[in-house]
Amino acid sequence: MTEKVLMKGNEAMAEAAIRAGCRHFFGYPITPQTEIAAYMAKQMPGRGGTYLQAESEVAAINMVYGAAAAGARAMTSSSSPGISLKSEGISYLAASDLPCLIVNVQRGSPGLGGIQPSQADYWQATRAPGHGDLHILVFAPSTVQEMVDMVYEAFDLADAYRIPAMILADGLLGQMMEPVRFPDTAAPAPDKFSWAACGHRGERPHNIVNSLILQPEDLEALVRRRFDRYEAIRQKHTRCECYRTDDAEFVVVAFGATARIARSAVDQARTAGLRAGLLRPQTLWPFPSDAVQALSQTARAFLCVEMSMGQMVDDVRLAVAGAKPVRFFGHTGGVIPTPAEVLHEIETLAGGASV
């Protein structure tokens, strides 16, 4: 690992992407992720890469499609309404089995909303990143170091399973500065995948990257094979962190920046004599349902904390399957929950969990 350096979350992700072998970045400015594009614009030309500010978010995601189809490591970044514009292209990438990295530094919404942090894109990322029967990998960092580490993992898994990957961050993490270390590993050589449309030179048959399958039976068979691959991802790459959950009666579930706040509240609850713990999903798709379900065997109740009106709470309730109470607490529009508020919710839950 390199020596620690103090970096802003957005810029740390961009640097990690370059070190991970990304050589093609296509984007469009929108707060609070613009520093990613700005960093790439400065760094890419001198480090063997290509930076291009597209004329729109729609153009940017389709440029990623083209670079990915040629077998290159490519990425784009945006924030909530920009990701909505990219959703058609994300569906095409998934349907064409193309790997890439998409970063969403969420802001308050719906519509243009505001520029403050939010987690209200959870449903979009995990349920409908694009139209049709598809999934994409969704990672949820809670520190700047984790933002760095997940960039490497996202690219590697995207390549391994031929699937788009998303890092679902938020404005708080994107603008935060923390010490980070970068792995000492060298950037991988550009891959020439056997499926890539990168010129055959008479040495192999033509490759065609395509998402149009006109025969219903053929399309169904292809989608079913893709879902077999999704199941393999669920089995091998679902990730979460459990904090003080071994004897927890009250389990807080939170991801991203909100998990940092929830961790403080859990510590305060322990000081007050309440056996609280935290389950933090690190992958939102696949969601760590098995870990939540396992804790439902011993916990008295769950508290889901989000910067939204309640989205991940649906997955928590599905995993708990009615075995124990699940309470929701959240703010939206860019309002950030405080540790004191979360502690109050834990205390309220403890008072009524047996009812």
Rank of each mutant, 00 (worst) to 15 (best):
E3A: 11
K8D: 03
A17I: 08
R19D: 11
G21T: 06
F25M: 01
Y28P: 06
P29A: 02
T31Y: 03
M40V: 05
M40W: 12
A41C: 06
G48L: 03
T50G: 04
T50K: 13
Q53C: 02
A54D: 07
A59I: 11
A60N: 07
G66D: 12
A67M: 04
A68P: 08
A70P: 09
A70S: 14
S79F: 02
K86N: 02
S91V: 03
S91P: 10
S96F: 00
S96D: 03
I102Y: 01
I102A: 00
N104C: 04
S109N: 12
P110V: 00
L112Y: 09
Q116P: 00
Q116E: 13
S118Q: 08
Q119I: 10
Q119E: 15
A120T: 11
Q124T: 12
A125H: 09
H131E: 14
G132K: 03
L134Y: 01
H135C: 09
S142H: 14
E146R: 10
D149S: 03
E153F: 00
D156N: 09
D159P: 04
A160G: 01
P164A: 02
I167E: 03
L173T: 14
M176K: 14
V180W: 01
A186S: 15
A186R: 15
A186N: 14
D191R: 15
E203K: 14
N207R: 15
I213Y: 09
I213W: 06
Q215L: 10
Q215R: 14
P216N: 04
E220G: 01
R225D: 15
F227S: 10
A232M: 15
H237E: 12
T238Y: 12
T238R: 07
C242V: 15
C242F: 10
T245H: 02
T245Y: 07
E249Q: 14
V252I: 05
G256E: 12
R260S: 02
Q268P: 04
Q268N: 13
T271H: 12
A276H: 07
L278T: 10
L279V: 14
P281A: 05
P281Q: 04
Q282N: 10
Q282H: 14
P288I: 05
S289C: 07
Q293M: 08
F302T: 03
C304W: 05
V316K: 12
V316E: 09
V320H: 00
G322M: 09
K324W: 06
F328W: 13
G334Q: 02
V335W: 09
I346A: 01
E347Y: 05
T348A: 12
L349D: 05
L349T: 04
A350G: 06
G351S: 01
G351R: 00
S354Q: 09
V355G: 03
